[in-house]
Design a binder for these strands. Structure first.
Lengths: 248, 248
DNA sequence: GTCTATATCATGATAGAC
DNA sequence: GTCTATCATGATATAGAC
């Protein structure tokens, strides 16, 4: 209750709109051209805002980048933790199936991306781009904010695969992150893939709801690949004492 | 033989040295901070050369980037083609083993990187960084120069896995490229990995020859993972008519 | 809260002396 | 081939009007 009777909500609503528009535009440009190559001029121009708007709303370009990331990643990682909680509760102390763990980690991501056909693909590309970004402040941000999620999943995998050397699990988790990030990242990578595809396979450009199907297929394809990689026979020369060859 | 008796070789040798030094320094900085974030000023300063040197020797920053890439990638892709030639010649018309194809593609890369303990790791990181770089001129450069190598390997995989849908093979090749690029790219990613590793696993920083062992282990670990992923069971919903489940 | 105008600086590139 | 000096441009950030 304010004593002026002025429509405060209207003013702040307009503010929110501008702020959100900046985030949306910035995200899209970051995905397309990278963080470094995207200037505040391009962002504010395309958002129909003033050049000073970013600094007013976020304080700096770095803060804008972090906000763009946080807006997406907070939810994903929150749900990742919830999914793991649910798995462990259901297992009641018994070790989890590795495929369930991967599903909770990577499946959660892909499911969230699929929910919004608009921003989903953009978000996936943003994440892929971010994971391969060299800028120090981005790497530090990711480590500070989301390290603990990786730690919990790492521990879960250790318990799920007790006779696989821990170093091996860590490496394979790393490989899986890479396959996911890269598969997801590239605008042009996808062009590359479709260019490879023979006409017989008829991979014509995306229609409205074809996108959702694409996401489904990507998810299934990726999960199959990841599980295959995680459970592959260990290399011969590694850790001879105990070896687990779950497959073949 | 020149009629002045002046030491021509010395002058041109000095040129070569400067040129090469610029390439070396640029490569290192590109790996560390990315292409965009690395200015000509930093490069020339660190190389002990004049600011104008890059433009004199290469014409532009873009050309410098391309030269840095070409210097490394030409050899890798030449040897990749030779390795595939040798495989196909030895097979005499019969389809190749998928693992042999992966070995020729990814193994060649890792072997070359291992040969030079000095520049090898840098080169690997450069490649990983490059594959995830958004800049258009870099993507175009890679496509123009090395697309045909991917095409040949793609075809080889098609023949090696005749009852796996081609689209599936292409996706999995893509996943494999991603796992490799990412595994290889990160300075800080590696810091992440070692931070994860428990003290028991005793992954202390690199000594002189520990690097070579690390490269060996990375190679074996990566190849195991890739083969596991390539040969994983196909996702249920994909292409029901013919399915190949090489493993399990 | 938003915009105009501007400050301050770093970038890639070039011209011309040596 | 290398240097100095300089250019035009575009970057982030800020001060102050409205």
């Amino acid at each position: 209750m304010n004593d002026t009777g002025l429509p405060l909500p209207t003013a702040s609503a307009s503010t929110v709109v501008t702020r959100e528009r900046l985030l949306d535009v910035a995200e899209r440009l970051f995905v397309r051209h990278g963080f470094e190559a995207t200037s505040l001029r391009k962002i504010t121009a395309e958002a129909g805002a003033n050049l000073a708007a970013v600094n007013y709303h976020f304080g700096s370009k770095e803060s804008l980048v972090q906000e763009v990331l946080r807006r997406r990643l907070d939810r994903v990682n929150r749900e990742r933790l919830l999914a793991l909680d649910a798995l462990e509760k259901a297992a009641a102390g018994k070790p989890l199936k590795p495929s369930k763990i991967l599903e909770a980690f990577f499946g959660t991501l892909l499911r969230i991306a699929k929910e919004e056909p608009q921003s989903g693909p953009t978000f996936l590309k943003l994440l892929g781009r971010t994971m391969t970004e060299p800028a120090d402040f981005i790497r530090a941000f990711l480590a500070d904010e989301y390290q603990h999620v990786l730690e919990r999943y790492k521990s879960a995998l250790f318990r799920a695969l007790p006779d696989v050397p821990r170093a091996e699990i860590i490496w394979r988790f790393h490989f899986m992150l890479g396959a996911t990030a890269y598969a997801i990242a590239g605008t042009d990578s996808l062009k590359l893939v479709t260019r490879w595809t023979e006409p017989e396979s008829a991979e014509v450009p995306r229609s409205a709801r074809k996108t959702a199907r694409d996401a489904d297929q990507l998810s299934e394809r990726l999960m199959s690949f990841l599980i295959g990689g995680l459970r592959a026979p260990l290399p011969k020369s590694i850790d001879p004492p105990e070896r687990k060859t779950p497959c073949r």
